[in-house]
Each structure stands twice: as C-alpha cells, then as structure tokens.
Design a protein around this nucleic acid. Structure first.
Lengths: 245, 245
DNA sequence: CGGAGCGTTGAAGAGCATCAACTGGAGTGG
DNA sequence: CCACTCCAGTTGATGCTCTTCAACGCTCCG
C-alpha cells in the first residue's frame, strides 16, 4: 500500500495520474515516528525536508508574549504539513505534534526534481499548499466574525469534513486529539470559555465532545451556528452534494 | 519600464533572472483600470486569468450572515492578487477594489507555459502565493491573540512595511485607502471601536491616521503594542536589519 | 443648500476573560 | 491496595473589553 495514499484524498487526488503517484511515492526518503506533544520545527528554522503526515495529529502555531499560543492550522493525515517550507526556505511559525505521529519525510531535493521534470505533479503540489491557504482564510473569518459558539461549531465541522475525506470518521463521529485548551488556542478563546460553550452546544443537542471523541448530533443546526459551508475545503463529491442531487 | 516591476519587489525579486522577468512581462495580456469600491470576482467564480495589482488598493473578503464582511487580505501594488486561483480554479472568497486600481491581466494559459517550461520561475510564482499564506497566518494570530490596540498597531505596521518594500511610503508615513469601517473589517472590530482605539493610539503618541494618511510616530512603541516582528513578510534587507548591522 | 458619507462621542449592556476552587480519572509510589 | 499527584474538565463570581444603539459634527459634492 502506498505511503502517500491519503495525500489529497477526497480533495482532488484523482487529478494525479498513476505515474504521478509513483513519483511522489518515490520522493519519500523515510518514515519517522514523532512522540506526542513535541515541537518538530521552530520559527526561523531552515528546512531541507518537508513532512507528509501519515497518522496522528499535528499543528502549526505562533506564540504570543503572554505565553499563550495561537494555532494557525490543524494537520490531519494526508496533509503535507510544511510543504510551504519548500518555496519559502524558512518557517514563520512553529510546528508540533498533538498526538504521536507517523510521518513521511520528503527531501526538498526530490521536490526540485519534480518541479523540473513533472510540471503536472508540481502544479498539484502547489495546489495542495493553496488548499492550506484557503483554510487559513476561513480561520480568519471564523475568529474575526463569529462568536464563541460559532467558532467552535465551525472548527468542529471543518475538522469533521477533513477527516471524513480521508476515511476517518463519518456518520457524525470522529476522534479529535485536542484538549479544551487546544480548542481555545485554535479559536481565540480561553479554555474556560470553551468549556462553557461546549456545554451550551451539548445542551442545545448540536454536538457532544467527550474524551477525544466528537459526536455531531445536528449537523445542519451546527452549520447554522457556525455559518459553515464546506466549499472552501475543495472536497470532491460529498454527502451534502449527493443529498442535493 | 516593466509593468511587473513591483512583483516581489523587496521580497525576493532578486531571485528572478532577467530572462524570468522578461517571461513574466510577456505573460501579461492587457492592462485594465478598475473603479474604486467594486467587486472584481465573486466566491465560486471560475478563473481563466489572474490579476497583478499595479497601482491602487484591493482586498479579499468573506461575507458573514449579519451583513458584515471579514477582510482576509489587503493587496498592495506588486501583489499577484488572485494567483492562487490558478491552481485552485475557483475562488473561495470575493475580491474587490478599495481605490481605483490599475491591474495587469495574466491568462492562466500563459502560466501553464511557465510551469511547463520554466520551473525556476514557476517556483517563484509558487513562492509568491505562499507569502500570501504567511500573511494569512499572521492575520489569524493578530485577530486571535491581540486586543484592539494590538490588532490595529500590527495591521498598520504590516501595511507600512509592505508598502515601503515597493517604494511607497517610508519615513514613517504612508497612504492608506481604508476608512475606519474597513479597518474594523480587517481586524475583527466595529468601526466605533476602531475610532476609539485610534484615538488612544494617537493620545499615546504612537500613530496618527487622518484622511487616508498614516503617520507612525513611535515605531518601536507600536511594535510592542502589536507584538510585531516583520520576519513573516520575508523582506529583503530592511532598516531593522540595517540598524542591527 | 441639502444630503450622504465618514468620523466622533456617549450610554448601556453582552460576551468573554480572569481568578479561584473543586471534581474525577489516570498514573505512581509507598 | 490506598494515598498522592497531576492533568483535564467543570463551575462560580467578578470585571473589563468590546458591541450596540443613538446622536451629532464635519466635509464634500450635487
């Protein structure tokens, strides 16, 4: 089975030819396992490799003066976590694991060859970094315009759809390795307020989150609260489209 | 004089060979002038061209249900406003002008040729879209972790540095075509609170913003309030580095 | 000269942060 | 096997930041 099986899965992987998939697969130098809750790369680091997340959860974040951090991205399996480090050379933020993580390491030299010799695959890699940027934009919207309930609803739905696209979760349930503190750091809230807000969402029978498992009770109600529309995830045919058809 | 003169100016343009600059210049199909305060492309639009901003100010934004909008990017001259539309094909947000804008239109077909035949230039275009993503991340941090004064301070310093990199502004002064309402939409604040916060920043002799002109009175003080570090702009040698040397 | 758009200010209140205390479960060592 | 600690979650009390609503002034322009 291919190590890169989940790359762009459910999000345009079909645009890759079998040859492209082989080339990407061969670009992998090695597989690493990273322990939970550790820093992988720091702001300012010069990168020589990029990391494809195979299993587990990672995040990208920035530190504020007061000691709190702001997550700028949650990475799920199939994500090319720091591919943007390839054209940028150095990172503008920290990267860390949330759970133990299995990753494939891809040397930038291998990507150089892809860019030089396989423009079609290069465009797909480029595209994958821009899917990340689309997520960034939605995070700006989420934090800038939604209240606490909306932010959490939106974040949970986003994560649900992303995980579902890779075959993890579905049927309204998924595993989420974030504690309430992390959730707050993702949504610009304190863990205390996350706790109260989750209680409200639970009382309103919209969503439940207990011990790392999220259960969506009322997806359309949650989508209303979070003003959520999965367009920006650029997913392939999904259940909301299938339902409309 | 080259139309694409300001592309990546002050932010890695030197990595482009003269040949690359010529190729990019020839990729321009035509020059358009867009009126102020109009929508250029809408969420969901399929794009066949991308737009290089030559003069003026544009923005990218998303609408919330309550009628307010959230800016996700401010575009200054030299920005390839919607180059991400090339690998993504369709947009996940709206693009509009703030002032009258002069733009260069680049057909995606021309970029196809660049990707196929000029990998070095393609990587530079790729990089330019990731500079945008780095800005997105900093916007997430700004809105998620800073208070009103910090957000405005950070936003003004970011814009100052970006404009300075293209030769516009410097010496602590620059033209900013945003009304207080826009500033609020960029920073996740109401225009009323922007007004009060600007007054405070003025009273503390940090920055003045009157009728489209921003005057930075105390750059280091402002940077402290906004927790601002221009690293993420990936600027070439600038005054803060020159001062350190 | 009247209106529209932007800026400014005041008053009141909602939402979220802060501080603090307590619960329950998991892991650890006696 | 039980005390102990640690960590995540939970809840209460209080106050600040920012929003909301409203009014008014200024400037530009038809």
């Amino acid at each position: 089975m291919r190590v890169t099986r989940d790359f762009l899965r459910g999000r345009g992987r079909d645009a890759m030819s079998e040859a492209d998939k082989d080339i990407l697969e061969r670009a992998v130098d090695r597989i690493d396992t990273l322990p939970a809750r550790t820093i992988v790369t720091r702001r300012g680091d010069r990168l020589r490799n990029s990391t494809l997340l195979l299993e587990g959860a990672m995040c990208r974040y920035m530190d504020a003066r007061d000691g709190f951090r702001q997550l700028v991205a949650l990475q799920v399996p199939g994500d090319f976590v720091d591919l943007h480090g390839y054209p940028l050379h150095r990172l503008d933020h920290d990267v860390g694991t949330l759970t133990e993580a299995r990753v494939a390491v891809v040397p930038h030299a291998a990507i150089d060859s892809i860019v030089a010799d396989h423009p079609q695959l290069a465009r797909i890699l480029w595209r994958s970094t821009l899917l990340d940027a689309a997520l960034h934009r939605e995070w700006i919207f989420r934090i800038g315009r939604l209240d606490a309930a909306g932010r959490i609803a939106h974040f949970l739905l986003e994560t649900y759809h992303r995980l579902k696209a890779t075959g993890r979760g579905g049927n309204g349930t998924f595993e989420l390795a974030l504690i309430q503190q992390d959730l707050g750091e993702a949504c610009g809230l304190t863990s205390v307020h996350v706790n109260r807000t989750l209680r409200r969402l639970r009382e309103e029978k919209l969503v439940e989150a207990v011990r790392g498992t999220v259960t969506i009770l009322d997806e359309s109600g949650l989508a209303r609260v979070g003003e959520f529309d999965p367009d920006y995830l650029y997913l392939e045919e999904g259940p909301w489209q299938a339902a409309a058809a």
